[in-house]
Design a protein around this nucleic acid. Structure first.
Lengths: 341, 341
DNA sequence: ATGAAAGCGCTAACAG
DNA sequence: CTGTTAGCGCTTTCAT
């Protein structure tokens, strides 16, 4: 099959018996075109199967209709879902997305940024850990490219930023346990270097204090994201502090490890926690996204709706595209509590 | 801060005291340029911070350096990792990737395809379930755009296709159990409408026969991807068929459910399976990607290296770009067995 | 080995 | 309302 010669705006103009300018106007919906001509042009377009060359359009000065997305780690479920939500939203507005990877720690953000600019994107979204935010902001200003950040945790200031409300999430999950009658609540998991964890621990701690409950630093234990480690850490914690009745787990792996650990030591899970003779320990957790594995676990958990966050990011970007001068702002995604049973 | 006026090839030519043509030649590495001039140009480029406008380049007739990727579901860990591998690979070759979503069932593949073409991509990769493969192939031919498919399971023929070896994966995991002494091996999970499952069950069955072991259709049970359902289904299966000593689980959720189910019924996990008095049942599973949750489970599992598959896809695409006439081929990714110690 | 010039397909003034 | 015209930034013959 021969390669169909590309049909251009010229061919359309010819077929419709008008000038290229007219076709262009019809295409962009600008200018007042008579209904009759508009009709004729549309028909020609249809008939010839014309698809407008965005590159040429953008070269001439218009918008490219393309948004660049630099995501740190596409394999993180949270960012994958964020990206999916964003792309979905943008595509429904007729935009397209250039996806590139900035590295788990944001190592490649700057180079990727340049590449995106050279591709003529209308705006850039950066999702994930950011290495050199200030430089990026300057670059964006220099190039006149709207920039929006989306991150799980961040201290960036003076930029458009959308992020989860880690502190509120921690408050919700802690308060949930308290309302179920728990007074001695421990924390399991995460590494102290993590910003996300810091924000969450902050919320946990604040909530305890707010309810006049004891906060013991020995009840906040670090551990790696492995079931075995979580299981061991929890057993040790409970052994040394038998009065603890509830545990907040930093993520789903830790949570599963905690649960399994208890079960393996002879505890049995019931609807509201894990029981051992006359004692009960309730579990609660943070999760990146809705996970099948947690569905059947005897615990409540809290997530940040990543897909919706992606949509918010898209909306924010569209706004900036409309009105480049609109003031930057810091937007926060409320978390969602998933109650067990 | 004022928006820096975009520096073009003209400015570079001026600064280096040569013509734009020369700069272009240096940029593309074509044509014989004297070392001296080349040096001077490169220096000017560096100094002015010039970045070549790919849109213009591509418009004029060159390649755009952009590959379109239509992925069905970015939230599936398998495809997320595949995409990540592909993008990584392509970016290291100076290419960029347009990412769009084709829908879980490939509903939007055709529209997305058109959009990508209008953006002037050099080639298109389709990852995921494909709805109308034949049409896509025709479209690609008409537009002269190389097309490569990557899918977890597919019957597409006569196209460039890279897919996992589901059958071999099933053979590996089944044989693994057999070599450990199991003779009565059951299958748990998946829905019979799934193509992937069909391929895997095929491999499981074939391996049993190859080793002269019994295959009972009652030992192959469907179940949804939920721990609870898996747990119930397994309990029932083992209750009715007490001679079974090993179970192959269709995915990680089913596997976790199976394990938990056994534990909750009083079984205890050991290194080589789950024990109950004098009886032992070994578990094995398919997983989409390496999962932390499976790491500490008493079972072996098999995965298709999605990231490497992504790299293969990228390579295949680059080949087609070099040599559009190279014959299509069906490439298969070997699975990897992860033995639980 | 390098320069001059002709566009790629489209849009944005500016005329009519 | 619609046509004319001048490029956007770059590549690519064709001369020199």
């Amino acid at each position: 099959m021969a390669i169909a010669k590309k049909v251009t705006i010229n061919d359309v103009a010819h077929a419709a018996g008008v000038s290229v300018a007219t076709v262009s106007l019809v295409l962009s919906g600008k200018g007042r075109i008579s209904t009759a001509t508009g009709e004729r042009v549309s028909q020609a377009i249809e008939q010839l199967g014309f698809v407008r060359n965005r590159q040429a359009a953008s070269l001439r000065g218009g918008q490219s209709g393309v948004i660049g997305l630099i995501v740190g780690d596409l394999c993180s479920p949270f960012y994958a879902e964020l990206a999916a939500g964003m792309i979905e939203s943008l595509e429904s507005q007729g935009k397209m997305v250039f996806l590139t990877q900035g590295g788990r720690k944001g190592e490649h953000m700057l180079e990727r940024f340049d590449t995106l600019v050279s591709q003529g994107v209308d705006g850039i979204v950066i999702a994930g850990a950011v290495d050199r935010g200030a430089e990026l902001r300057t670059k964006a200003e220099d190039n006149g490219v709207p920039l929006v950040f989306a991150s799980r945790a961040s201290y960036l200031d003076d930029v458009d930023l959308i992020r989860p409300d880690n502190m509120q999430a921690a408050q919700m999950i802690t308060e949930h346990l308290i309302r179920r009658g728990h007074q001695r609540i421990a924390w399991l998991g995460g590494q102290s270097a993590s910003l996300t964890r810091a924000e969450r621990v902050g919320g946990y701690c604040a909530t305890l204090l707010k309810f006049g409950l004891p906060f013991h630093s020995e009840w906040v234990v670090e551990c790696e994201a492995s079931q075995k480690q979580a299981s061991q850490a929890l057993t040790q914690l409970l052994g040394q502090n038998p009065t603890i009745t509830a545990v907040v787990c930093y993520n789903s792996v830790v949570a599963m490890g905690a649960w399994l650990g208890l079960m393996r030591s002879g505890w049995k899970s019931s609807d509201e926690g894990v029981d051992y003779y006359d004692k009960r320990v309730a579990l609660a957790a943070f999760a990146e996204v809705r996970e099948k594995d947690l569905d059947d676990a005897p615990m409540s958990w809290v997530i940040t709706p990543a897909r919706e966050m992606g949509k918010s990011v898209a909306e924010r970007m569209l706004q900036r595209l409309d009105d480049g001068k609109s003031t930057v702002r810091n937007q926060i995604m409320p978390p969602r509590l998933v109650k067990q049973q």
